[in-house]
């Protein structure tokens, strides 16, 4: 029993990180029909921004993390939208998909060639100590990761539902044409979603890198996890992406412990296929909202 509890908590902690990546994925899809196949690399890269700030410029860890988030917002948010996505929108969906695949390759190879092909140690944000809760040994760091991720998600939800800009963004996501008629500055809202995506990816990066170690190839696994989480959750709902992320994290850990390590990766994918076949609107999605 204690074992299952520990597995679930560990799964929730990584799942919350997947959720951060999945939310951004969903937002981009909703507002600009961008399926971002470079999403995993967007989570891989910010840790390297922090490493550059720490190791090349000698800045302290907290400042480096802040810099990493800012640089991500700038490069993976604004520059990504203006340079990569905007010129591509008129070319249709397939060229954009190909372009994000190429971008993923570019970021992966870039991190490898300009930083290192080897994994890099990355400091924990929380001390790696244990606390005993109801007789179960839990890792403080895992609980910290879970709390941060949930706080970020809650803040995002508040922003989307309680502020004017947030509601305008939701309107844009649901139906850009109608939103435009209603006087919503659609272009600006789309830019905001790209910025939020980049910021969430950067948060996920800072939380996952102490566990995974910063490595150029991390995006492959993270991208897949975010992707599955987004679809399982329902491609059109922020809440869906959160539920999807947590579910994928927990299932992954339980599968690793009780199914087989060799096939652990396949369990979330089977889940993905089952959802596509039997509940394509996702865990929390609603059928009528789906674009395309």
């Amino acid at each position: 029993m204690a074992e299952i509890l520990q597995l679930v908590i560990a799964g929730l902690a990584t799942g919350a990180i997947y959720a951060l990546a999945a939310i951004g994925f969903t937002l981009l899809w909703q507002t600009s029909q961008t399926i971002n196949f470079a999403q995993g690399e967007f989570v891989m890269l910010p840790a390297f921004f922090a490493l550059v700030a720490m190791n090349w410029f000698g800045w302290p860890f907290w400042l480096s993390c802040l810099v990493a988030i800012l640089v991500s917002v700038l490069l993976l948010g604004m520059v990504f939208k203006v340079i990569v996505v905007d010129p591509m929108l008129k070319q249709g969906v397939l060229p954009l998909v190909i372009s994000t695949i190429a971008l993923g390759l570019l970021l992966r190879e870039g991190a490898k060639d300009f930083y290192s092909a080897e994994a890099q140690p990355f400091p924990y944000i929380f001390p790696d100590r244990q606390v005993s809760v109801l007789g179960v040994q839990l890792s403080l760091s895992q609980i910290g990761v879970l709390l941060i991720a949930l706080a970020v998600i809650a803040a995002l939800q508040l922003f989307l539902s309680r502020t004017r800009t947030g509601r305008q963004m939701q309107a844009t996501a649901q139906n850009p044409t109608v939103a435009r008629i209603l006087g919503v500055p659609v272009e600006r809202m789309i830019l905001y979603t790209f910025i939020i995506n980049a910021a969430l990816a950067a948060m996920a990066s800072l939380l996952i890198s102490p566990i995974y170690l910063a490595k150029f190839s991390n995006g492959e696994h993270l991208g897949l996890a975010a992707f599955v989480a987004a679809i399982v959750g329902g491609f059109n709902q922020v809440r869906g992406a959160i539920a999807g992320g947590l579910l994928v994290g927990v299932i992954d850990n339980l599968a690793a412990a009780y199914v087989s390590t060799g096939y652990r990766q396949s369990v979330p994918l089977i889940l993905l296929v089952l959802f596509i076949l039997f509940r394509p609107q996702g865990l929390l999605g609603r059928r009528e909202e789906r674009a395309v």
């Binding site: 990569v84 591509m88 060229p95 190909i98 190429a102 971008l103």
Partner: peptide, 10 residues
């Protein structure tokens, strides 16, 4: 290669 693909797509 990746860079050229992106240019080509644009």
């Amino acid at each position: 290669y990746a860079f050229l693909v992106m240019l080509l797509m644009a």
